[in-house]
């Protein structure tokens, strides 16, 4: 093809130019779509890496909390005053925490039943039963600590501290250590 016969072939050249323009616009559109797809893929990758990092950090943090609360739980002296009765203390010292908690639950139910219809009107007797109940709550909180359950233990200790009973100060001391 040369300049002389360009006019004779004008229609085919016009069609070639139309195809060329269409092809270039189509490719630019393809680039835009591919770029958008890539950006979405990168965003998804970043999101999944961040989520994985959060999970890992969360797991590490959770393990640390659990480890710390166990240490505090095991540093608590059970022997002083034979807390809760010898059987509960013995189970806790053996490390049989589930069994200890079961005993605590049973003893609590028994005490609560007695408090509903006490055998006597003696105020000191009733006060002692209420103190025994709070002591059971404290022992249960220590069991939770020894199981590494930071948040459950913290909530239980907060309840004892807020109740203002005979073991409120002990609960407060334990909370400070957490």
């Amino acid at each position: 093809m040369n300049a002389k016969n360009i006019n004779d072939n004008l229609d085919s050249l016009l069609e070639a130019a139309i195809r060329e323009k269409g092809a270039v616009l189509h490719m630019k559109d393809l680039e835009r779509k591919n770029a958008a797809t890539m950006a979405r893929r990168v965003a998804m990758k970043v999101t999944s890496y961040v989520a994985a990092a959060i999970l890992v950090l969360g797991a590490v943090f959770s393990w640390k909390l659990s480890s710390d609360v166990r240490k505090v739980g095991y540093s608590f002296d059970l022997v002083a005053g034979q807390r809760g009765g010898s059987e509960i203390s013995a189970l806790m010292q053996e490390g049989n925490i589930p069994a200890a908690r079961l005993k605590i639950r049973e003893r609590r139910e028994s005490l609560q039943g007695e408090l509903l219809s006490p055998p006597t009107d003696n105020r000191e007797y009733i006060a002692q039963m209420e103190a025994d109940l709070q002591e059971l709550d404290l022992l249960d909180a220590v069991c939770l600590m020894r199981q590494g359950k930071f948040f459950h233990a913290r909530r239980a200790l907060m309840r004892i501290k807020d109740s203002g009973g005979p073991f409120a100060s002990t609960a407060s001391e334990l909370l400070e250590k957490l």
Binding site: A16, R19, E20, A23, V24, M27, K28
Partner: peptide, 10 residues
């Protein structure tokens, strides 16, 4: 590249 592809297409 886009011009080369367009030329090939034509």
């Amino acid at each position: 590249y886009q011009e080369a592809c367009a030329a090939l297409y034509n």
